[in-house]
Amino acid sequence: MKIKIVILSLVLSVSLCSCLLTSCGEKTADNSGKTASSAAQNDAGDKKLSDVYEKITQETSLPEMYIMTDGYIESYYGLTADMMEDKVFASAEDAMLADTIAIVKVPEGSDTAAVEAAFKTVKEQKMVELESYNPDQYQRVQKAAIKTFGQYVCYVISDDNDAILNIIESSIA
């Protein structure tokens, strides 16, 4: 009887430890794009575009991505919080890869022109920087898509541009 209880106690302990281990693992998830849905949600303050991004990561082939900070988005793209009702900005963690997925939902009644212009400026900047420096990535940036669907403006650099734009369009429709 005593042995049985000891064995039972050990089994229960191992089970509890496994639960603890699992939850700790989730807590320590980093900022990589593949596991960044919560980070994207926090940044965006809205679930929808982070869900769209999550779907893109699941259905297309992306390199390791990271979610850009609000500070960087403002500093580099010149886009401030009041210009975006919702957003997702992800880019390749490897600085030598141009892969980027940026989706912005402008506030109701706002013009999308400023965001489109910001994306166009960044695309041109990348092309100038990469033309002689990294010709392979330059060609990928050349094919970058800047597309507007109603209130949503997208900037996509990937080998799966069309698939990604289809996911975005079907998700926000």
Binding site: E74, S75, Y76, Y77, G78, L79, A118, T121, V122, Q125, V128, E129
Partner: peptide, 13 residues
């Protein structure tokens, strides 16, 4: 210039 390398800051070269 259009083709010169300068950093982007606040969305402007």
């Amino acid at each position: 210039g259009e083709k010169t390398k300068h950093p982007l800051y606040k969305g402007k070269k």
